[in-house]
Amino acid sequence: MNTSHQSSPPSSPSLSQPPNSAWIPWLLVMVLFSALVAACVGFLKALDGTPVSGALLAAGAAFGGTALLCLAVVPVVQQLRQRG
């Protein structure tokens, strides 16, 4: 009688859930904040009399700049937490 016990390999905990799953809400906050800044910039440019294409271009630049700034703050905060 040949009984082989095949067990599945242990699942890695990092595959099921990342160690720090709090980054998803923060990413959502960053995107929403960037969208708010972009909407404000686009609205102000439209009030100034800028054509729609110019207002959309300014809003896109504001969104990209704000998103990059928010994403750049994350490593800085992590470094400051490790120091203290």
Rank of each mutant, 00 (worst) to 15 (best):
V29Q: 05
A22N: 02
G64F: 01
M30N: 14
V74P: 02
P13G: 10
R81K: 07
V52L: 01
P75V: 14
D48N: 11
V37I: 14
S12V: 13
A22R: 03
V31W: 02
S14E: 05
V52S: 09
G84R: 01
S21G: 06
M1L: 02
S34E: 06
S21A: 13
K45E: 05
P9R: 15
N2V: 13
A46E: 01
S21K: 07
L56V: 10
H5P: 12
P75Q: 04
S34A: 15
G65A: 05
R83L: 05
L69T: 15
Q78C: 07
Q78R: 08
T3S: 00
A39R: 00
S4P: 03
W23K: 02
P75A: 11
C70I: 14
R81I: 01
L69Y: 11
F63K: 03
V76C: 06
S4R: 03
L15P: 00
P75N: 08
S53K: 01
V73A: 12
L36G: 06
D48T: 15
P19W: 02
N20D: 09
A39C: 02
S53W: 07
R83I: 05
W26C: 05
L47E: 00
L28Y: 07
L32V: 14
P13M: 06
A55M: 03
D48M: 13
G65K: 01
G49M: 06
S4H: 02
V52N: 03
S4E: 09
S8W: 04
S7V: 06
P18Q: 06
A59R: 02
A59N: 09
G84K: 00
L36R: 02
L57S: 12
Q79C: 13
V41D: 00
Q17M: 08
S16R: 07
Q6A: 13
P13T: 11
T66A: 15
V76M: 09
P10V: 13
M1E: 07
Q17L: 10
A59M: 05
R81L: 08
S21F: 06
I24Q: 12
L15W: 10
V76Y: 15
L57M: 11
M30P: 08
P10L: 15
L80I: 02
P51C: 04
G84T: 01
G60M: 00
F33V: 15
L28M: 12
A38T: 08
V37N: 02
P9N: 09
N20Q: 06
G49C: 10
F33L: 15
G84Q: 01
L15E: 11
A35T: 14
V31I: 14
S7P: 00
F63S: 09
T66D: 11
P10S: 08
P18E: 09
I24Y: 12
L44P: 05
G60A: 04
P18A: 12
L57A: 11
L44K: 07
T3F: 04
G64C: 10
R81H: 04
V29P: 00
Q17N: 09
A38Y: 00
L28I: 14
L80M: 04
V29R: 08
S16W: 03
A59I: 06
T3Q: 03
R81D: 05
F33H: 10
F63H: 07
F63Q: 05
L57D: 11
S53A: 10
I24L: 14
L68T: 15
G65E: 01
W26A: 13
L47S: 14
K45S: 12
Q17I: 13
A38Q: 05
L44N: 07
M1P: 09
V29H: 03
T50M: 12
L57E: 10
L56W: 03
P9C: 11
L68C: 14
A35N: 04
V29D: 00
